[in-house]
Amino acid sequence: MGYMNTASTGGGGREPRWLTEDEQRVWRAYLHATTLLEDHLDRQLQRDAGMPHIYYGLLVQLSQAPRRRKRMTELAIDAKITRSRLSHAIARLEKNGWVRREDCPSDKRGQNAVLTDDGFKILERSAPGHVEAVRQAMFDRLTPEQVGKLGEIMKIMAEGLQPQDSGADLPWLR
């Protein structure tokens, strides 16, 4: 029998569309690879910069934003995380002196996260090791054709998972 979820048929009473053996193999390989990749990148960044991968991604987002600042809501959307997880992460980055919060001048309820000079320096120091870890784990193992196909596949998956409905249950809306 294919990949099963015994908790629910999930299709309003219809028989589940179980995964074929080939689909199971691909699904498990995908889960295995993405779990290992995320762990690899987390370990590298913890060792070299004392931060998890998610924090590095937030610093990168801020470094690429105009004046190295971004509204917290936009940062949550770009990072694809809940607002509470973002708030916790920003608090930790503030404690390290890498980010500070400022009130948003155009919206008194909003806040901006701002990358500090120290935050920019830690990003500059950690970026070469991080990009090397990404290159070794992923791009050095793939042909240019495989890289192109993987990019196409990930784009299709992301587009299918990014609802256009503003009422959708997305992490950054929670």
Results as ranks from 00 to 15, higher is better:
M1E: 12
G2A: 07
M4G: 09
A7W: 00
A7N: 01
T9Q: 09
T9V: 06
T9M: 06
T9K: 09
G10T: 00
G13L: 07
E15A: 08
P16H: 01
R17D: 11
T20S: 14
R28M: 14
A29E: 10
T34E: 13
T35A: 04
L36T: 15
L37W: 08
L37A: 14
H40D: 12
H40A: 09
H40Y: 07
R43K: 06
R43L: 06
Q44S: 13
Q46Y: 05
Q46V: 14
G50I: 12
P52C: 06
P52G: 09
L58D: 06
L62R: 02
S63Q: 10
Q64F: 02
P66Y: 04
K70G: 01
M72P: 06
M72S: 13
T73L: 11
A76N: 09
R83M: 12
S84A: 12
L86N: 07
H88D: 15
I90S: 02
A91D: 11
A91R: 06
R92Q: 13
R92P: 03
E94M: 06
K95I: 08
W98I: 08
R101Q: 13
C104S: 01
G110F: 04
N112W: 12
V114C: 10
V114D: 04
L115D: 10
D117H: 03
D118R: 15
L123Q: 07
L123H: 05
L123M: 05
L123R: 02
E124C: 11
R125I: 14
S126D: 03
G129E: 04
V131M: 12
Q136A: 13
A137L: 05
M138H: 05
R141I: 10
T143A: 13
P144T: 03
V147I: 15
G148A: 13
G148R: 14
K149N: 01
G151F: 03
G151Y: 03
E152F: 03
E152Q: 07
M154L: 09
M154T: 04
M154C: 00
K155N: 04
K155C: 01
I156Y: 05
A158I: 06
E159D: 04
Q162L: 02
S166Y: 01
L170Q: 00
L170T: 07
P171V: 00
